[in-house]
Every structure is written in structure tokens, then in C-alpha cells.
Write a protein that binds this DNA or RNA. Sequence first.
DNA 1: CCAAGAAATGAATGGTGATTCAATTCTTGG
DNA 2: CCAAGAATTGAATCACCATTCATTTCTTGG
Lengths: 191, 191
Amino acid sequence: MRARLTASRERIVDAALGILAEHGYAGCSVAAVAERAGVATGSVYRHFPAKADLFAEVFRTASQREIDAVTRAAAAEGTATARVRAVIETFAGRALRSPRLAYALLVEPVDPAVEAQRLVFRRAHAALLAGYIADGVAGGELPPQDPELTSTAVVGALAEAMVGPLAAGVAGPETIAGLITFIHRALGVPS
Amino acid sequence: MRARLTASRERIVDAALGILAEHGYAGCSVAAVAERAGVATGSVYRHFPAKADLFAEVFRTASQREIDAVTRAAAAEGTATARVRAVIETFAGRALRSPRLAYALLVEPVDPAVEAQRLVFRRAHAALLAGYIADGVAGGELPPQDPELTSTAVVGALAEAMVGPLAAGVAGPETIAGLITFIHRALGVPS
DNA sequence: CCAAGAAATGAATGGTGATTCAATTCTTGG
DNA sequence: CCAAGAATTGAATCACCATTCATTTCTTGG
């Protein structure tokens, strides 16, 4: 019984995530999510006090997945430079594989309450990068700089490069190589 | 009479721009715009078929003003490096002076129809920068690179650095200096 | 097998804000 | 000065969805 409860809550979150990844936030009416989850509209409200809470959780879940992937990839590397490269490759690779989801997570207009989660998402990436950059600076691998600022700028560059062209319909693997060069230069990685 | 027509249309656009700059898109109900413009709600529809059309024009106007300022600043410089610096200084300086407007133009959730204008705005900045970067590459001032990609990334970095911290409430003039360093390095300006 | 309570249902409600339009007020050519 | 037509008004309408809740359907301890 308790299990059934948990399961249906999960199905709702999954359904929302699925619609988000296929049709974006615009397609995510409560009715649509409920239908896809195989529950009644009203049942969504047994699990979440409001739509915004559901989507805050959806965004949190999806974001965490991204952050985890990126963190794992970076952890496998040894130097600050390599870690930053791993972050770029992973972030961009995943975005290219799920462009609709990337768009939704990064820029699609959403409820202000959900927008807050987006900020968390972006800042989490930035914080991760800031740590690596600070390490690089401390170890003499990178020139002195404000890791907060540069990591923020890097996240912005990554996001724009991924979703800006999305509208124009172009962003291939060659984009990733270009971004790595751009960002390594920006951080002052010796060539 | 014709003049009165034009004048009231302009007052409506100005009113919308004013509210946008003070309270963001969220504060821009048609009723609020009409009141500020000193006309009846319904009169807005004599000039624009729909709210989205009004705001497409508002965004176009505001964007053009930004682009013009940036273009003018860049034109006063002689080298690609100096032009890029002028773009950053102007873009960031204006954003810091009108943070609410910058937020609205760059990232605040809006109608999808208006979102399209935002894309135009970002791409216009990118196109401008791409031209300078291409010149710099052609003249040997900058190393080889894809100007489309690097200009897009620069616009993303600028936007994120301006409005990301906006939520956190911090972004001062020192941010601009940091961004110039970051972007010059990213483009491969020799130090 | 049987209540008693929990969970699920989905049609009805409610709030928001864009859009419409019948009534009214201006313009202007004669 | 006077219609005829254009412009303006703003209250009423409409559409869209999130949210609610009376009703129905399960679950389970006895």
C-alpha cells in the first residue's frame, strides 16, 4: 500500500519528465501529466500541493541527474584542465542527445516558482566548475582569476552554445571541440 | 488626426517599455499598459492585433536601442580587440544601469511569440561580434576559430554574468573588468 | 466476509487576464 | 453648425487551466 503510493508518485514525476523531454514545459498541463501517469487529474494533488511543487521536483530530479553525470565524468580526471574538459564534454554531449530537455531545463519559459530551480541548476554547475578552477589556480595550472565569475561565464557560454543554435537547428559534435578550445583559452590553460 | 493616432501608438509602446523596465514582463498586463499610456484597455487593440504583437514591437525597439549603443561604441575603436572590449563594456554597463530591463530582455519568462524576438536580440549581438572576430582572425590579430561559435559563447557568457548574479544581487563594475579578461583570453587575444 | 477508513476519480469551480463590442465621444468636410 | 464616420471607452465575455470536492472504489484489520 505504502509502496503503491510511492510508485504512483514516481509515475507522476516520470510522466512529467517524459512530457517535458518530448514537448517541453508548454505541453505539461496537469491533465496531460496525469493521463500519461495513468491517474486522474485530481490524484496529482494527493502527492503535490500544487503544480509548481511537482515541477520543482521534476526539475530538481532532472538537474541532479545532469549534475551527477558531469561530476562523475570530472572525477575520473586528474588535472583541473582535464576536469573542465570532462564537464564540457558531458554537459554538451547530453544536451545534444536530449535537445528538448536541455532547452526546457536551460531556458524555456516556466512558472517563476520553477524558475528558481533552474537557477539552482545553473549555479550547481557553476559551483562545480568554480571548485575545479580554484584548484587549478591554487596549483598554478591556471592564472589568477575570480573562479565565481569565470565559472558563471562558462556556464552561460555552454548554455547559449547549446540552445541558441537549437532554434536554428544546428549544433553538432564539432561544436563541442570548439567550446573546449574556447573555454580552455578563457581560463588561461597554457597551450 | 493621423498624428494623434501615431502619437497614441507610441505612448502605448513607451508605456509598455516603462513597465517592462520597472516591473518586468510579469507586470505588463494590457490593462496596466493602457492605464499608463492614458488610454482605455480596448484602445490597445486598435493599434495591435494582440498583446504578443505589442510586445514583439516593444522587444524589437528595446533591443535595437541596445544593439545601436553597442554598435556605436564598437565603431569608435580601431582593432578587433578594442571593438570586442567596447561591446562588452557597453553591453554590461547598460545592463548594470537597468538591471530589471536587462533581465526582461535576456531571460525573464515571456510569451513564446515574444521569445522569438529575444532570440533575434541575442543573435544580433552575436552577429555583430562574429563580424569583429572574423575581422580579427583575417587580420592575424586573433587565432583561427569559428566566429559563429565563439560569438555565441561570448553572448552567453555576458548574459549569464549579468543576470545570473542579478538574482543573487551582486554584479558590480569589477565584473566588467573580469569579463573583458575572460573574453579576451577566450578569443585568443595575445596578452 | 464486512465495515470503516484511505485513496482515487473527474466533472465542476474559480481566478486570471486577454479580447471583444455596443455605446459614446470626438473630428471634419460640407 | 451639422451629420457621418472614425476613434475611444471600459464593462462584459471568453478561454484556459489549476485546483477542489462530492462520489465511488479500493484496502485491510477483525
